[in-house]
Design a binder for these strands. Structure first.
Lengths: 127, 127
DNA sequence: ATCGGTGTATCGGTCCTATAATACACTGAA
DNA sequence: TTCAGTGTATTATAGGACCGATACACCGAT
């Protein structure tokens, strides 16, 4: 599940770890209620510091993906597909807002973005 | 033109300055061929270091927005609307690629993004 | 009660970025 | 030539992000 972790990558280790967990949950490899690897266990397996794993798990917990139970472990959160879908929508809107800000700062308009979106994803757009 | 510059903002000063110039050019407040404020002059006006202004101007020069002439000043570049439009398109695609990476890392799909785009901008989307 | 598992909290070091400071080099007009 | 203006280059400082080390606190089985 964590085979793609690369300490030399420019993206932070804790983000890589969190990403692995997210895709594992999305793909069903990690079912709701199931326990994640322990902080120490994963740290030993990846030969990194426990605190780094903690940071990844805390991010996931902040997003409601997992729950950390002191003394017990970290578990995939039970949420209805509807709620999870809503959560994704919220985050997607946040990403789009940031995109629009960045673009505006460079004088790039919504029409430029929608065209680029179409080119990169194949999703067609109309006004 | 630089009234919105805020040293306490989390976005770097040089980006704020570059953004101001870009919108000034886009709005026509700064015509092609016209000179920008000198590095020292703007630095004094904003009470910041000249090197910070330089970094902003260099970014703009790298994007082809302005031309820095040693000993003379920094001038808004003459470019055809067509070329400028192409440049915007390139940057827009770059922004979209980054958006897609960020989203994938969080398990957010293209469909989530296109819906969010629609919500935030009012632009309708179809597959 | 104890012990081996778990997460929690705090500190310090390293690296990178943004910004500043300062000295340098070019241009055009007097 | 000289000088006041301009951009250029190099080095130094402050701050933050990332990661590691280490000590602490909780839980459940024995």
């Amino acid at each position: 599940m964590f085979s793609s972790i690369d300490p030399r990558s420019p993206v932070p280790l804790y983000e890589q770890i969190a990403a692995c967990v997210r895709v594992a949950v999305a793909s069903g490899e990690l079912a709701a209620g199931e326990a994640l690897p322990s902080v120490r266990g994963l740290a030993r397996e990846l030969r990194i510091n426990p605190a780094t794993v903690v940071q990844a798990y805390r991010d996931l917990a902040a997003d409601g993906f997992v729950e950390m139970r002191h003394g017990q472990g970290t578990f995939v959160q039970e949420v209805s597909p509807l709620l999870r879908r809503e959560e994704r929508a919220v985050q997607a809107r946040e990403l789009i807002r940031r995109l629009l800000e960045d673009a505006a700062r460079r004088g790039i308009g919504v029409d430029d973005l929608s065209r680029a979106f179409q080119v990169e994803t194949g999703v067609e757009i109309r006004e």
